[in-house]
Design a protein around this nucleic acid. Structure first.
Lengths: 149, 149
DNA sequence: ATATAATTGACAACATATTGTCATATTGAC
DNA sequence: GTCAATATGACAATATGTTGTCAATTATAT
């Protein structure tokens, strides 16, 4: 069997996603390194910031496409470091809700102040319609895949 | 400062790339698990398969957007497991060229036989023009980012 | 040709992430 | 309401990946 035209492009996209993920982590580490953070920890804060309601560890993991164990580990470390708080979850005795602290709010705002001009600059020479199409396609691909846990 | 329209979409793409990368690794692990491989090792073979010339470890790392140390580690393990061979590189005394073995050729062919219908199926309901735009955009983003080593 | 810079393999320390397992909590079928 | 299935936190083992460093090799500038 051979790839269809679309199957071929799809495969190239998959490989490019892997590559880009590695490069973006490196880029994020550069931005966060002076704040005692890392890409992985910044992403946790980002998941919280983008949610309208507080999230549990499991919910964060699903938003991020990772296992709850990986997220739990980071969240616990960040909690010890004063970057995250747990508050009681009325809907679940064990699954607490994860929240920003004052400290992490400040750091996150600072990181945003660096990320925004970076994103604007990186996307400046890219076509808006193509960017929109890219986001649409990536989301559709994600939707068809299952979680590991 | 605020995100431009394009900067906003760009940021969403970045987060979706992280998520998708995690989901795709899980998917790849499912496909490879019966063959004593993993996503990470399959990607090494893929990088070699897609190149017209044999590659050094550093070259593989650059193609994959990872550090040479990470790739070196996997390549050494795979070499011990009979999945990769080193051959002398006329252009460099230490940097050997990495090659398939008969064993890895067979496994890779088998994985391809699973990946192809999967990619065709996953992309079946997606628009070809949008897929092409996605690949173009992702490659352009990669090009603007630097390697960690 | 020589000196300097960049590349590469090797090794170690550490960060990040998956898999497996267990006990506890919640959900859903009946 | 009961019971099975599912979801969750905790913990351990392992795989994957980055950073830092050193010595050896190659490339580059002069």
């Amino acid at each position: 069997m051979k790839h269809t035209d679309k199957g071929h492009i799809f495969t190239e996209i998959v490989l490019e996603v892997f590559k880009l993920s590695g490069l973006l982590i490196t880029e994020g580490d550069k931005i966060t390194e002076t704040n005692g953070l890392s890409s992985a920890r910044w992403k946790i804060l980002g998941a919280l910031a983008r949610s309208t309601t507080p999230l549990t560890v499991s919910q964060i993991a699903r938003v991020m496409g990772q296992t709850r164990q990986a997220v739990q580990s980071l969240v616990n470390i960040m909690n010890k470091g004063g970057l995250l708080d747990f508050i009681d979850n009325p809907a679940h005795k064990r699954a607490k809700l994860v929240c920003f602290t004052t400290k992490s709010q400040q750091i996150y705002a600072k990181l945003d102040a660096e990320q925004i001009p970076w994103a604007n600059q990186q996307s400046g020479h890219l076509d808006k319609t193509e960017l929109q199409a890219t986001l649409t396609i990536l989301k559709k691909i994600s939707r068809g895949l299952s979680y590991s846990d």
